[in-house]
Simulated scan of single mutants.
Amino acid sequence: MLDLDLWWLLLFPAFFGLGWLAARVDMRAVLKQAKEVPAAFYKGLDALVDDRTDVASRSLAEVARAHPDSLDVQLSLGKLYRRRGENDHAIRLHQKLLELPDLTAEQKSQVRFELSQDFHKAGLVDRAEELLLTLLKSHHMGKSAREQLLSIYQQDRDWEKAIATARELRSDAHSFQHEVAQFFCELAQAALYQSDYDKARHYVAEAFAANRKCVRASILLGDIEVAEGRLEAAITAWQAIEKQNYEYLAMVAERLFDAHEALGKSQEGIALLRGYQRTFSQLELTDLLYQKVATYEGEAKALEAVREAVHARPNLLGVYRLIEAQMDELSPEGRMDAEVARALVMKHAQKLTVHRCKRCNFRSRAFFWHCPACGEWESFTPNRSETN
């Protein structure tokens, strides 16, 4: 037993010595590799950090010329060309890479995918699509190719292909139900413009099948009902939005009132607007409510309605209406002062009151179902917010 312990004591220094030797060998290998990296690589990396892409592209091109067999360097240079808008350089580089005889199938797929992005960025969408379709069966690039195709089909408004591609991309991580519902809504909107109400109804039903909480489908269904003279059904469709997402009620508020008015139920329409205003103070209903109440109940009631709305949710447009509603009661001098204040409020309201994308913070006075900046669907705030 004593001899065994002695052997262990003798082995411990040997283990430490082997560990020290391995560390020295690894460190020498690292230092050797670091010395082999061209100085232009570090220069290009430094330029990228400083966002000097012109210097970075020249430096990386120098590295690529020195290492023509390094696929990663060549691909990085191609991406940098594309980022700088030098699409012709990127295309030539990737086409030249495809001519290399020793590329593996995986590497060829990667180069073809980069080339498809070059074509897309250059506006050669057909050529990009043609390349991407050849990658769909690729184990490594198939998913990326479908995602790129989906982007192309949305850009081209080819909603049928977009629907098919989104369904192929569906997974536990991303169901694409919101996107597919919006694609069907685009088709329904086009059919409605052409007065093809049966086809529009079919697409709306498909949108609901993809996403039963699709507000846009409810809006379109109400529009179809109105076009076919079924006002009560239209009111039912639009009121369903309250349970789907009440923030979008402001988008159909005037349509709801008009439908009630056409049925001879103007007071019910006003009562509905008042109810929405009191229950959901963030809805942008003040201006509409003022106009309808003033028409059917008089200026005094309209002023009361505006005052209630502004006190519940102070905002510039509400203040504008509040000043306007009281102008007739002022003296000539007071009216002049109020006019200056009203004009100033409206100027700032028009500047600051915008719809905003909740994903990328893009701002616009117009509402979009599809954000023109980041491409997200249903990300725009339906009610304008005051921001700077």
Score class of each variant (00 low, 15 high):
G264P: 04
L131Y: 08
D158L: 10
A338D: 08
L249F: 09
C357M: 02
K108Y: 03
E299G: 05
A271P: 05
L11C: 11
N87T: 15
P13W: 06
A233P: 03
H140G: 05
R24G: 09
C360H: 10
R65K: 15
E247V: 12
D328G: 07
L169C: 09
D54F: 06
R274W: 02
N383Y: 04
C374N: 10
L249M: 15
A128S: 15
F16S: 05
H94Y: 12
S138P: 02
R24E: 13
I323M: 02
A166T: 11
A188I: 08
Q107N: 09
E62T: 13
G334W: 04
A366F: 10
E147K: 11
T353P: 01
T381M: 08
L187Q: 14
E378H: 06
F368W: 11
L303S: 12
L45H: 10
R313P: 03
A205M: 07
E304H: 09
W377T: 06
D102Q: 12
W159V: 03
E114S: 12
A341T: 02
A22K: 01
G264E: 01
L149M: 01
P13N: 01
R112C: 05
Q107C: 11
E228G: 08
R112V: 09
K79A: 15
A64V: 06
A162C: 04
A259I: 06
D88S: 13
